[in-house]
């Protein structure tokens, strides 16, 4: 049984390598049929739609900060992320503001979370004091 991700990757590959979208879709549907997975089509299409950017090699990264980040900081974050996600063709940043973080940034890409906020540091400090 193939995962939604595997099917979505196949659909993306076909869309990039076939002459027309029609042929790509036909081949994809045939593959679904062979694997008896026709009833999963709706879910796969939904997944494909939501993850199109990731499939095309664009890493979507959420950057949450306590206040609005200036351009310089955003460029720095992007530069840093290119080192962390070397496979990404491009990186798009989605910035969010959460004043509860007090300071610093929280970076979320794929399954990975990098918490560089003041709040996290204070929590770590609190835990270390409690464990003495």
């Amino acid at each position: 049984m193939y995962s939604q991700l595997a099917y979505a990757q196949l659909l993306y590959w076909l869309s990039q390598h076939e002459f027309s979208a029609k042929i790509a879709i036909e081949k994809f549907l045939l593959f679904l049929k062979v694997n008896n997975d026709e009833n999963r089509l709706a879910g796969i299409v939904n997944f494909f739609e939501h993850n199109y950017q990731a499939l095309s090699g664009v890493a979507e990264v959420r950057v949450v900060s306590a206040s609005k980040l200036d351009k310089e900081t955003m460029t720095y974050v992007k530069k840093y992320l290119h080192q962390v996600v070397p496979d990404a063709k491009d990186i798009t940043l989605q910035s969010e503001i959460d004043s509860g973080l007090l300071g610093g940034v929280k970076i979320l890409y794929g399954d990975t979370l990098l918490d560089l906020t003041v709040k996290k540091q204070l929590t770590n400090l609190k835990n270390s004091l409690l464990n003495i």
């Binding site: 399954d111 990975t112 979370l113 990098l114 918490d115 540091q121 770590n124 400090l125 270390s128």
Partner: peptide, 12 residues
């Protein structure tokens, strides 16, 4: 003496 460390976390 507290040393803060950052580590990547895996989340879903």
């Amino acid at each position: 003496v507290f040393q803060n460390t950052f580590k990547q976390e895996h989340v879903g």
